[in-house]
């Protein structure tokens, strides 16, 4: 039985559906002793901004049961250093590179994307919309549907490469956001970025991270992330990149079955930087066991036939 784990979106063919999530694998170059990045479906870079960013003051992380909070503040080297130093190194190790972009205005997103367009070796873009929008008083782009629509339109007009919009789960209806991305020509939506979370010390009565609230990630969020992917699956027909708490092949399979075409592994890489290829192997083993030869047979194969009464009762 010959098994194919290849997935093509727009003009990028991913050799398997497992990518590293933005901000959880540096620039893909820091852990050569633990993982061969050419064995990954792809590497999504740390969010890249127009200028280098120092990021937030310490404390930036806190551990929670089965999860963690972070307030990194998009610390990154900026687009120039990324393109001149990191990208050439990533090309040498044969990684499929998706550049994640962060900005505080649509012009700035467009600037970073256009700078990237001048360079070879980028497979596509993932747009982090969980960034403060200066035009909108610093409220996140990601919670403003018209802003996401306008941004997608502007960026679509500037590239022929794969364009994925990374959605925040911190909205009432993520499906509406996915819908405007699809309508404006995005090739995929990445679901999801971190949930807003918080933790404090009761003795000192102080927050555990400097920004008081932060991004909540890790195994604890998997069921919530899966529900978001399910909601988006019903709203759009473009490919979904499933993200949130994925640690094992079984976790990844859940996202594929619910309807994601690709998955990203984030927090789990802090425990095992080599988790990506291991998960990809586990997916192949599952396909072998179940006589599945192509991922397309698996993607969106969720069987809800036993729940008709719940659906009728408005549980959708």
């Amino acid at each position: 039985m010959s098994i194919s784990t290849e997935i093509t979106i727009r003009n990028v063919t991913f050799k398997n559906p497992v990518l590293t999530a933005s901000g959880t694998f540096g620039y893909g170059l820091e852990s050569p002793d633990y993982v061969d990045v050419s064995q990954l479906g792809g590497v999504v870079t740390k969010s890249i901004s127009r200028k280098p960013r120092d990021g937030n003051p310490p404390q930036r992380i806190a551990e929670t049961p089965a999860g963690m909070l972070n307030s990194i503040g998009l610390a990154n080297v900026g687009v120039d250093v990324f393109l001149n130093e990191k990208l050439p190194a990533l090309r040498k190790v044969n990684a499929t590179v998706i550049v994640n972009i962060a900005a505080s205005s649509i012009e700035e997103y467009a600037y970073v994307l256009e700078r990237c367009e001048e360079h070879e070796g980028i497979g596509g873009y993932e747009i982090n919309v969980s960034c403060p929008n200066v035009k909108d008083g610093g409220l996140s782009f990601g919670t403003n549907c018209p802003a996401v629509a306008e941004m997608t339109r502007e960026l679509r007009g500037r590239t022929e490469k794969l364009l994925a919009i990374k959605l925040t789960p911190n909205v009432t209806s993520i499906g509406e956001f996915a819908h405007v991305c699809e309508a404006e020509g995005a090739d995929a939506v990445s679901c999801i970025n971190t949930f807003v979370g918080m933790d404090i010390f009761v003795d000192s009565r102080r927050p555990k991270i400097a920004t008081i609230t932060g991004g909540f990630s890790g195994p604890a969020i998997l069921p919530m992330a899966l529900a978001k992917v399910y909601e988006v699956r019903k709203a759009v027909s473009i490919p979904i990149i499933g993200i949130g708490g994925i640690t094992t092949a079984e976790d990844a399979l859940k996202f594929l079955i619910v309807g994601a075409s690709l998955v990203q592994v984030g927090t789990a890489l802090f425990i095992d930087p080599g988790a990506g290829p291991t998960i990809a192997e586990g997916i192949v083993a599952y396909m072998e066991r179940n006589g599945i030869t192509s991922l397309t047979e698996l993607i969106g194969s969720l069987d809800t036939s036993l729940q008709p009464s719940l659906i009728a009762a408005g549980w959708e």
Binding site: T24, F25, G26, S31, P58, N70, I72, F270, P273
Partner: peptide, 30 residues
Amino acid sequence: ECQMACGIGICQGCPVEMKRGNRKYTLVCM
């Protein structure tokens, strides 16, 4: 000593401010 998430420079979770240099923070793990 400081709390870390990854220990290998991939999360940016362990900054300490520097007095000089071109970066504001150094990552304790890396």
